[in-house]
Amino acid sequence: MAEKLTLEMVTPYKKVLSVDVDEITAPGTIGELGILPGHTPLLTTLKIGELSYKQDGKISHVAVNWGYLEVGDDKVTILVDTAEKADEIDLERARAALSRAEDALKTLTQEDAKFAVMEAALQRAVARIQVVNDR
């Protein structure tokens, strides 16, 4: 495949990625979406999850937090709150966070103010663990 996508990923702290890739899979708010070169211009919000991209046949994964993604002219710009590559993730910590969130969710109900917070924490932990496992 001659054509490539330019992927740029930035967080408020720094530019995380700036690479040419063949394919991107991102966790959109209303469902997973795959992007190939020649994609129509698109703007979508992202949810907590795992974003992966294929570069020269090699697939890499990144855990992302809230953000959004813009596709235009074979250029993909992703703005996220946090982005962690597999080697930056502390698996032990993610596991601990997961069990902590699970325990908390058992005692909480939907109406609790903390419910959404813990649910988000749970999703983040799951995304992190997934990224490490997919490595």
């Binding site: 698109l42 703007l43 919000t45």
Partner: peptide, 19 residues
């Protein structure tokens, strides 16, 4: 003016209200 019309997911209003 790039006249390309974007596709919005979920929709424009939603995206705008988050951004």
């Amino acid at each position: 003016e790039d006249t390309t019309d974007y596709l919005y997911e979920p929709d424009r209003r939603e995206v705008l209200s988050q951004i």
